[in-house]
């Protein structure tokens, strides 16, 4: 128990203090070679990317997360895909996405064709060499066929071999962006994740969405600093912080709103911002104590 606490409490406190950066694995662009890895096809509507999640990911969600930044609705954390690389920006990602604008999940065996999955993203365990596909919209299958990875034994995953262009998903233009991602596919606004990705790391051919978090954030969250701690592209590219002063304040619209960073009050400076939380705790305790006192007094009267 104490060991458990020792692990949990600091985690919570740290989380409360600084928030965590989302660790997003770098994506291996292009399809996998051989039977290792899982092909991840993401159809943004206006463009499509194909990447390879290396190894044998335990679930489709794990595979997807290893190649893209994924945001789940807050109601269904970890199990449902709401945004992939910031698409769609208009969905607040609280409830289940609507049936006409969501990420449809397909999978295909090696060499096979797309099948609409009857298992959730989190529950589906793709076999190495098979493909999984995500298509934004009303449930249609991805516009490209599942990549046939078998005939490509070439050791070097050639950059953008299977991609005609760097995927340019529509910019999450904040309030203006429509739920249909097609609307502004060519805009290529600075907030587009891809832009930042290519800019950020030219050496790797893969569109690494590595971004530097705010210095403060990263230092305050040492637990997540094992790998290249990355937060969402939108944040860095725009250079504005998603930090909000208190929980009641919404994130800035436009660039900041595009990515689902923790919606919480991320303290601008380490101390003091926990005050609302502790005030809330105090309020709950106060009300509960009042109720208990009244109940006890009534019982004593009887």
């Amino acid at each position: 128990m104490s060991r458990w606490l020792a692990r949990v409490v600091p985690a919570i406190l740290l989380a409360g203090a600084g928030g965590f950066a989302v660790p997003v694995g770098s994506a291996d662009a292009a399809a996998c070679s051989g039977t290792s890895g899982v092909n991840v096809v993401i159809d943004y509507g206006s463009s499509t990317t194909v990447s390879c999640a290396p190894g044998d990911p335990s679930s489709a969600m794990a595979a997807l997360k290893s190649v893209a930044s994924v945001v789940s609705p807050q109601r269904y954390p970890g199990t449902v895909v709401c945004r992939i690389n910031g698409i769609p920006a208009s969905d607040p990602c609280v409830q289940m996405p609507p049936a006409n604008a969501y990420w449809a999940f397909y999978h295909a065996p090696a060499g096979g064709s797309w099948t609409y999955s009857n298992v959730g993203v989190a529950g589906y365990n793709p076999a190495p060499g098979s493909s999984i596909g995500f298509a934004f919209g009303a449930g249609a299958r991805p516009s490209v066929a599942p990549p046939a990875s078998a005939p490509k034994p070439s050791p070097k995953p050639n950059p953008s071999s299977s991609r005609p262009k760097p995927p340019a998903p529509p910019a999450p233009k904040g309030t203006a962006s429509s739920p249909k991602p097609k609307a502004s596919s060519t805009a290529g606004t600075p907030g587009a994740p891809r832009g930042s990705a290519s800019a950020g790391s030219g050496a790797g051919s893969t569109p690494k969405v590595t971004v530097l978090p705010n210095g403060k954030t990263s230092t305050l969250a040492p637990t997540s600093s094992t790998t290249s701690s990355t937060t969402t592209s939108a944040t860095t590219t725009s250079g504005t912080s998603t930090t909000t002063t208190d929980g009641a304040t919404t994130q800035g619209s436009g660039d900041g709103g595009g990515q689902a960073m923790a919606p919480t009050s991320q303290p601008a400076d380490g101390s003091g911002s926990n005050a609302p939380f502790w005030a809330g705790v105090g309020l709950v305790v106060l009300i509960g104590a009042a109720a208990a006192y009244l109940a006890r007094r009534r019982r004593a009267q009887h």
Binding site: V22, Q74, P77, A262, T264, S265, G280
Partner: peptide, 10 residues
């Protein structure tokens, strides 16, 4: 907020 984890707002 659980993914990532954080303190709830008030």
């Amino acid at each position: 907020p659980v993914d990532p984890i954080g303190l709830p707002a008030l």
